[in-house]
């Protein structure tokens, strides 16, 4: 697979602006927006200029939101109703690390390093040239295991993996390593998409899925940055007994 193709594969749904409005709501926005705009035009012809204009603007906003799935107001409020749309849950995180893309890549490519900074990962065991076995521990001690394969591997640039077989929590992800401008190191972009199972009681995978959040991954990447830049993980503990 070509590099560009690999990126567009996972990035198909995350163009410049993220989708943050769910399916049903998008359709409602399209219909409602169109109606509002038409009413607005009618009001204008009836010489009610101000209300007419207001309705047209609001109608246009709803149309845009329905068509693109992006809502500026939602973004400002931090609301995202798109999560459970078909295509699983997508988490994107970014961090800049003061090391070269090759250095960051090499640390990540040694998959057995991942549990040193990813809090929910208990172990990653390399089982073949492109295959590995992952074990994660979530809330209340639930564990989920799966096999994964490396789908694309461009040294110093990109890694793409996905779970294989009957994974309880199917997932895929890309890690992109880009040189930051002006000697600022590497811009690391991590995209993880997972497909949560139904929310049945006692389902370990569902519990695990709830524990994977953007904030959690961001903290993981901060630890990665600390390890690569300072050689250790920052702690404010006073003693080992905590």
């Amino acid at each position: 697979m070509e590099l560009t193709e690999a990126v567009s594969r996972i990035g198909a749904r995350m163009k410049s602006r993220k989708v943050n409005v769910g399916h049903t709501e998008r359709n409602a926005s399209l219909v409602g927006g169109a109606a509002l705009a038409v009413t607005g035009i009618k009001a204008l012809t009836g010489r009610r200029y101000l209300p007419g204009l207001a309705m047209m603007v609001a109608g246009g906003m709803f149309l845009y939101r329905g068509k693109t799935g992006f809502c500026g107001l939602y973004q400002a409020l931090g609301v995202d109703t798109s999560e459970n749309a078909a295509g699983g849950v997508l988490i994107e995180t970014f961090v800049t690390i003061n090391r070269t893309p090759q250095q960051v890549y090499e640390f990540w490519r040694n998959l057995e390093n991942l549990p040193s900074f990813m809090r929910h990962l208990e172990s990653v065991e390399v089982t073949g040239e492109n295959t590995s076995h992952w074990k994660a521990r979530g809330p209340a001690g639930v564990t989920v295991e799966w096999d994964a394969e490396m789908v694309a591997d461009y040294p110093g640039q990109l890694i793409l993996w996905r779970s294989t077989g009957e994974a309880a929590l199917p997932n895929e992800g890309t890690v992109e390593f880009r040189e930051a401008p002006g000697d600022r190191g590497t811009e690391l972009k991590v995209s993880i998409r997972y497909y949560p199972p139904g929310d049945g009681p006692g389902k370990a995978a569902a519990k695990m899925a709830n524990a994977i959040t953007g904030a959690q991954i961001e903290e993981d990447l901060k630890r990665l940055k600390q390890i690569l830049e300072t050689g250790e993980t920052a702690t404010a503990e006073r003693t080992n007994n905590h």
């Binding site: 800049t96 003061n98 901060k222 600390q226 830049e229 300072t230 920052a234 702690t235 404010a236």
Partner: peptide, 22 residues
């Protein structure tokens, strides 16, 4: 930390790495 971009720029109090509650 002395290693992050900010520390290297002399902006020590803006260190990227030393605050576990960032």
């Amino acid at each position: 930390c002395g290693d992050c971009w900010y520390c290297k720029q002399g902006l020590w109090s803006l260190c990227d790495n030393s605050n576990p509650n960032s």
